[in-house]
Amino acid sequence: MIGQDLLGIEHLERDQIELILETAEHMQEIGTRDVKKVPTLRGRMVVNLFFEPSTRTQTSFEIAGKRLAADVVNFSVSSSSLSKRESLLDTAKTLDAMDPDVVIVRHKVAGVPQRIADVLDAPVINAGDGAHEHPTQALLDMLTVFQEKGRIEGLTVAIIGDIAHSRVARSNIYGFTKLGAEVRVAGPPTMLPPHIEDLGVKAYSSLREVLDGVDVVMALRIQNERMGGGIFPSVREYSSTFGLDRAKLRFARPDAIVMHPGPVNRGVELSHDLADHRPSVILDQVRNGVALRMALLYLIAGRAFPQNQE
C-alpha cells in the first residue's frame, strides 16, 4: 500500500482491511513497552492538515507518527494562510513543495481529501471529510470489535443516531459489511437517508427492534454544531427514544458491547453510567486508534516507487 491514498473504506478490498487490522494488532505491543517508540519512520515527515478543529483524531495521528519516529508537523487552519485567502489547492501545493511523506487531511466539505490527493505527490489519508467518510475511525472500530469478539464475520452491528450526517456511520457500514457482518441502522426518520438499504444495511425506526440480538451497539454523536436545527424536536426527545441506557440495552445480546466515536454527549446518546463502564469500550477505541494509525502510517508513508524499480 506504499504511496497509496486512503480516502475511504468504500474502495478498500477486504484483504487490505485485514492486513491493516493485523498490522495494528502488532503495533499495540509497542504501546505496552517502556520505550514506546520504534525507528521505522525515522526521517519521514507526517503532516496533519486539519481544516476543521479536532483534538482526538489529530492527537492520535500525532502520537502514532511519533511512536514510529516520524517528524509530525501540525498545519492547522487557524495558523495557515487560508486566513489570508490562499486557495485550498495552493495551500496543498505549498505543502507538497516541502516534501511530506504522508498528509493527513480533515475538512468539513466532503471530497476535499480527494481533491488534495489529486495535486499532491505524497499519499493522503482522509481523517474525516464532511458527511462522506472517516476511514480511520471505522478501522479502529473494526479492530476494537475484532479484539472483543474474536471475529467480525457473522456479527450483527447496530449503528444508532444521525446516520444521514455521519461519516463514521458511512465508513463503518462499508467496513463491517465488507468483513461479513450484518449492519443495521436506526434513528429518527429525519436522520435516516433515503435509499440507505442500497448500502446493504437494514433500517429500523425503533431502538427495541434494532437492538434485538445484536452483538455490537454503536451510538453516534448528535452533532448540534453541524446541523441547522429542525432535524429532531428536542435533545430530550431524542435521548428518550434513541439514547442508550442499561435498561434499553437489555434488548441486545447479553454480551453486546457499546461503542461511541466520541466525544460523548452524556445523557443524550449514552447514559452517564454506560459512558463510563463496561460494556462500553470507548477508551479501548481511543487506545486502538493510535495502534491503527501507526499501522496505516507504516503501510502507507512514503512516495510510490516508479514502476521500473523492481
Binding site: 506504499i2 504511496g3 497509496q4 490527493a117 489529486d118 495535486v119 505524497a122 510510490a304 523492481e310
Partner: peptide, 15 residues
Amino acid sequence: MAPPRTTSPDSSSPP
C-alpha cells in the same frame, strides 16, 4: 498522491 504516481507497484512488487 497525484495521478502520475498512481501506477504504484503493489501488484508488481515481490510477495
